[in-house]
């Protein structure tokens, strides 16, 4: 087959919802797009452990501590599912880690905001994981098999994350006036960054059309953002706290909520590395990697020594 035939054959498969698997022919640009997207997604899970990991020792009860620990462990697991999905495309784990540390690869900007109170653990689970689920449910049907399978596993675990966050918010909102204020303050700080998680407006998202054609993406950024807002308004009402947007209003014609324009200057600043915690987050990752070097080397040396011993025993 000629290159052009391969390409037609590939697109036909995609159009008839046949998954692409690692050894199948695929255009180089499809491979590159997936490596970029999956590795960034994996990095987001790993960096996403930092704001919450910070609160494990300060969780207000043993129950909350056990739950938060389980959640953060899940994030590590999600990172690992995704790294291994990306590796099926021919990039090594070390290369991905190196790209994160050099700043070449990005991760979700949301994790460059600080988690300053216990209520933030509630808001992060409720809003950040809630927004992530909107994206991830759609990705369960992505055209690349290993990515779609990793997303199915992740989605199964993610809804616990959102519910435990909402549970923290419910508890705070049913508490003292001061506790309810903590919940309101967390909502105020996390609302806009959560809406930014869906990425630029559709007209400023140049790669979306290609990703839709390849069925990596199923819904546009703005559609997913709208779905998230529509789902979340009622949840805030039940908590009895107010979403920080005076223009938030039901629109009967579109059967959805209207809301204010996002502050894209802030979004671009955080993406460019100038958010409140960008340097701190990256430093934590680089330090962990550097300080863990001797462990990785020692484990490998031990494995080699054991393998030699087994071989010698077999010969004797």
């Amino acid at each position: 087959m000629k290159e052009l035939d391969f390409e037609t054959d590939f697109q036909n498969k995609i159009d008839s919802e046949i998954k692409i698997e690692p050894k199948d022919w695929m255009p180089e640009s499809y491979r590159k797009t997936l490596i970029r997207q999956i590795s960034q997604h994996a990095h987001s899970e790993i960096v996403g452990m930092l704001p919450e990991g910070n609160w494990i020792t300060r969780a207000p009860s043993l129950k909350r501590k056990a739950i938060l620990l389980a959640k953060v462990q899940d994030e590590a697991g999600h990172g690992l599912y995704l790294y291994s999905a990306a590796e099926t495309l021919g990039i090594s784990r070390d290369q991905m880690v190196s790209d994160l540390h050099s700043g070449k690869a990005k991760y979700s900007s949301i994790f460059n905001y600080p988690a300053t109170s216990w209520a933030d653990m509630g808001a992060v689970g409720w809003l950040v994981d809630g927004a992530a689920i909107m994206n991830q449910v759609a990705l369960c049907r992505a055209s690349y098999g290993p990515y779609a399978r990793a997303m199915v596993r992740i989605c199964k675990e993610e809804s616990f994350h959102q519910r435990q966050g909402y549970d923290i918010m419910m508890k705070l909102c049913a508490g003292t006036a001061e506790q309810k204020q903590m919940a309101q303050d967390a909502l105020n700080r996390w609302w806009w960054p959560s809406l930014m998680m869906f990425g630029p407006n559709d007209e400023n998202s140049p790669n979306s059309a290609q990703s839709m054609k390849w069925r990596i993406k199923r819904f546009s950024n703005d559609d997913l953002r709208q779905k998230f807002v529509d789902a979340t308004v009622e949840q805030a009402e039940i908590l009895g706290i107010k979403i920080p947007d005076d223009n938030l209003k039901w629109n009967e014609t579109k059967k959805g909520y209207d809301f204010s324009e996002i502050d894209w200057t802030e979004f671009n600043q955080v993406v460019a590395g100038n958010g409140p915690c960008n340097k701190q987050r990256l430093k934590a990752r680089v330090d962990a990697w550097d300080k863990g070097a001797w462990v990785r080397e020692a484990a490998l040396a031990y494995a080699e020594k054991k393998a030699v011993a087994i071989k010698e025993k077999a010969v004797a």
């Binding site: 070390d94 990793a150 596993r153 490998l300 054991k306």
Partner: peptide
Amino acid sequence: NTEWPLWEVFIRSRQGLNHKHVGSLHAAD
């Protein structure tokens, strides 16, 4: 250059079913 080898993982979800591929991971041994 100390990347641990890659392993494929197969899980038997319950007695009576066969092991099924679930993904991969890195480990020293």
